[in-house]
């Protein structure tokens, strides 16, 4: 079951109450038997770049802090890990610090695991050998994505976040499915306190459940994205399917506690800002202009390389 709610406000206390409400099924699963009941819970937020959480482009640290808080009260013995990896060529340690996650980890007694240089462990997925960061392999992994569209994939949700966490390409369907199979996620919590769908918005919403595929499906509905366009979605849904989930998936047509479609209708429709990298035709045109006019070529129009 995927549960949803809207926080009364974005004050830390109200966000904490909302997380406690929405994450109950997820916490039930994390307290249960099997891999989801592991001694370690690794929470994976979206920290791809130090964009302020109010832009909707990164996971709100208040949401992650609240999840650690309810997790600690429900399972005080569990080892809490904040597992982080930023986008390509972006320093994860600095990004995590700039976003305030060092304080979150300190406050809630969580260890910060920087996945870029975390020791790997061998895993076998669908009969193929691979490797993932060891800190993820024997933990219940909980992706906490922001609710945002992305340039490389239609939305950067639970699956893309899990893929990045393992070092896989979020845009490659096969890699995404293998990542999901390798880490066996214990559920997911979507931070839609702020969203980005071409423009930022603050719907104050949260979605959570013990089945990463149905949570991703709810996020896709919120952002108006067809799950068929999400790389690896179908395969990930297959590898995370259990008899119990199968029955619930076919029965679940709505998110408990939240009118996702109604909320989706209130969100802006748009695209990511255009790249600041000048188009090659702009560069060519400007060079022609400088040749004709004698003007100089602005360095800002140089390709980034």
């Amino acid at each position: 079951m995927t549960r949803g709610t809207q926080a009364r406000s974005l004050d830390a206390g109200d966000v904490g109450d909302a997380v406690a409400t929405v994450a109950e099924p997820l916490l039930d699963a994390l307290a249960g038997d099997g891999s989801a009941g592991a001694d370690r819970v690794a929470v994976v937020p979206d920290v791809h770049y130090p964009y302020h959480p109010s832009t909707g482009m990164t996971t709100n640290p208040a949401v992650v802090g609240a999840l650690f808080s309810v997790l600690a009260s429900r399972r005080p013995d569990v080892e809490r890990v904040l597992a982080v990896r930023s986008g390509p060529a972006v320093d994860t340690r600095r990004t995590v610090g700039y976003l305030g996650y060092d304080d979150v980890a300190d406050t809630h007694g969580a260890d910060v695991a920087v996945l870029d240089d975390a020791p790997p462990t061998d895993v076998e997925t669908s009969g193929e050998a691979g490797a993932v960061p060891a800190v993820l392999s024997d933990a219940a992994v909980v992706p906490v994505p922001s609710a945002r569209i992305d340039g490389s994939v239609p939305l950067f949700g639970c699956l893309a976040l899990l893929a990045r966490a393992t070092g896989a390409d979020p845009a490659n369907a096969s890699s995404v499915a293998k990542a999901v199979e390798a880490v066996d996620p214990g559920g997911a919590l979507v931070d839609a306190t702020y969203t980005f769908t071409g423009e930022p918005a603050r719907p104050r919403a949260l979605l959570a459940g013990d089945d990463v595929a149905t949570v991703e499906d709810a996020l896709a509905r919120l952002l108006g994205v067809d799950t068929g366009a999400i790389p690896g979605f179908a395969a990930a849904a297959r590898v995370t399917e259990t008899a119990d989930r199968s029955a619930r998936r076919s029965a679940a047509s709505s998110v408990d506690g939240l009118d996702v479609d109604g909320l989706a209708a209130t969100l802006p429709e748009g695209e990511l800002p255009a790249s600041t990298e000048p188009h090659r035709l702009v560069r060519a045109g400007y060079r022609l202009y400088t040749w004709v006019s004698g003007d100089v070529y602005p360095p800002q129009l140089e390709a980034d390389g």
């Binding site: 986008g87 060529a89 972006v90 320093d91 340039g151 600041t276």
Partner: peptide
């Protein structure tokens, strides 16, 4: 000196 979206490093 930050990069607005799409994100790109270094910081």
């Amino acid at each position: 000196s930050f990069a607005r979206p799409p994100a790109r490093g270094p910081l």
